[in-house]
Amino acid sequence: MNGRDALAELLARHDRVEELRAYAAAEYHGDAARRLAELLEERGDVEGAIAVYRDPGDSGSRRVFGPCPGRGSRALAGYLLDLGRVKDAVAVLQRPMPRPAGLTSVGPVDGPPF
């Protein structure tokens, strides 16, 4: 349905927030989490919507933007920019990304880019 999750849309349309929250925790692609954030914003809970992007815990929301570290941060920053919260968005983008376990670097990789 236009690249959207039909069940998430149905739950949102009927204002079934807790069921949508549970579905977002289980749904792999993150469409339900995205829709949950949109619904929370529509209801005036902007901070709740931000929390969906900022701190998904172990839920499926963590996978909203795939396994690439930082993609969730970019989505959060984009959302904050949409809200006009430029300083908050910049702060999100300036946070250091965690290094995946087992990844080591040698030489100039840890240094400046030039």
Rank of each mutant, 00 (worst) to 15 (best):
P96Y: 03
V86F: 07
G60R: 08
V90E: 15
V109P: 00
V17K: 00
D88W: 06
E18P: 00
D88C: 13
R74I: 15
M97G: 04
V17F: 14
E42V: 13
E19F: 02
S73W: 04
P113T: 02
P98C: 11
R74H: 13
P96M: 10
G70D: 08
V52T: 09
Q94K: 11
V86K: 06
P98Y: 08
R16G: 00
G107L: 07
D5V: 00
P67Q: 11
V52P: 03
R54C: 14
D55C: 12
A32E: 07
R16Y: 11
G70V: 15
A37T: 04
L10D: 15
D5Q: 06
G78Q: 04
A8F: 05
G44C: 07
R16I: 07
G70K: 00
G60F: 14
V17Q: 04
Y23R: 01
S61T: 09
G66T: 02
G72W: 15
A32G: 06
G44S: 08
V86E: 12
C68D: 07
L10T: 03
L80C: 05
Y79R: 08
P100C: 03
G30N: 06
A77V: 04
A89H: 11
V106P: 01
L83S: 06
A77Y: 03
L103S: 12
Y23P: 04
V90P: 02
A49D: 03
Q94A: 05
C68V: 14
R63H: 08
V90K: 04
Y79T: 01
D31C: 02
A24D: 08
L40M: 13
G78F: 03
L40H: 09
A8T: 06
L83D: 13
